[in-house]
Design a protein around this nucleic acid. Structure first.
Length: 336
DNA sequence: AATACGGGGAC
DNA sequence: GTCCCAGTATT
């Protein structure tokens, strides 16, 4: 059929141009040095929803601290969380630790090779399983991340909401077709992500793009409309009152244990309150913007801790920095 | 299908 | 300010 032939030609053209383009730029990054699945795993988890530049120092420090899967499995969760301090999405650190133990128990410490097995590791979803499978083992699994969504929705003018099943299926199919024609999964997956990260960016650089002839969105002047944006959840404002005990060189800190932000990190004893109450408080006021919440914090130093706040553990001020804190708390301690 | 989960960089 | 980043787990 004519349509199928044209489609196939377009796919081949895209593959050729993409691989030619990639040969000219290939970014050198620390996790590309070898095909050690453990290192690739760590890098992929760090890079979830995280920019390359932000992830690099964490990747280097993490591998210095936990050089092998066994080191990670045998570490305490506390140490792992500490390595993650400041990076955000702390469940990634929890799952990395849980995943290392899972691999020790289920696969005798040997990182599994098959996509379906990789997918069962805690914290690994379809993207990360495909990335590890292709980068470490040459598995024929196409990655679909934010870059791929953007590149392919534009190339093929995919209108669907990519957070929904239909849209996901379309992108997955295109990406898998391209990969199978390209034939080199590690290099193709790397190329399409690098392309999305540097050329087919949210505000695209079409003037330097080698594939404008194949890009349907460009032809229709729709590049800025694709991929379809999802409506963002509305911002939540929260008001925290911290009681900072300070007597004889001691303080109290408590670990956050609930299903909420900053789980497993420490903070001072805290009472969440209303905006009205918060504005009347005396103390050091700092705020922190998260993607979906604005946290307003007031830190009040006290010589006596009310009984109901006396939870957690008493610690020396001079050791306090060794605990893991959210950015906001760390900032307060730093400027105090 | 929708929501929660951090922090930061680019504009 | 806004967008969104090499996403996943839970509801």
């Amino acid at each position: 059929m004519h349509f199928c032939t044209a489609f196939f030609m377009s796919i081949k053209q895209i593959r050729n141009n993409l691989s030619e383009w990639h040969r000219t730029i290939d970014r050198k990054l620390p996790w590309k040095e070898d095909r050690n699945p453990y290192k690739i795993w760590v890098s992929e988890i760090i890079l979830q929803q995280t920019r390359v530049a932000q992830g690099i120092p964490y990747y280097l420090a993490f591998l210095l601290k936990f050089p092998t899967l066994k080191h990670l499995a045998e570490a305490n969760l506390e140490e792992v969380i500490t390595q993650w301090e400041g990076l955000g999405y702390y469940s990634r650190a929890r799952n990395l630790h849980k995943g290392a133990n899972y691999i020790m128990e289920t696969h005798n410490g040997v990182f599994p090779k098959e996509y379906e097995e990789i997918l069962l590791i805690p914290g690994i979803g379809p993207y990360t399983a495909a990335a590890i499978s292709s980068f470490a083992f040459d598995g024929m699994h196409a990655v679909v991340d934010g870059n791929v969504n953007r590149v392919l929705s534009r190339m093929f003018n995919i209108d669907e909401d990519l957070s929904k099943h239909i849209g996901k299926k379309k992108i997955k199919k295109l990406s898998q077709d391209l990969l199978e024609i390209a034939g080199n999964p590690a290099s193709f997956n790397q190329a399409i992500m690098d392309f999305g990260a540097t050329v087919c960016t949210p505000k695209p650089k079409c003037e330097i793009c080698p594939m404008t002839k194949q890009c349907v969105a460009k032809k229709l002047e729709r590049t800025l409309e694709l991929p379809q944006k999802k409506t963002k959840p509305k911002l939540r404002k929260r008001w925290f009152h911290y009681l900072v005990y300070n007597q004889n060189g001691k303080s109290y800190i408590v670990k956050r244990v609930n299903k909420d932000i900053w789980k497993d990190l420490f903070e001072f004893p805290m009472q969440e309150c209303s905006e009205i109450e918060w504005k009347k408080l005396e103390g050091v006021k700092l705020s922190q913007k998260l993607s979906h919440q604005h946290i307003h914090a007031c830190f009040t130093e006290v010589k006596k801790m009310p009984i109901k706040y006396k939870t957690g553990q008493k610690v020396d001020w001079k050791n306090i920095s060794s605990y893991s804190f959210p950015r906001l708390i760390r900032d307060y301690i730093g400027q105090r």
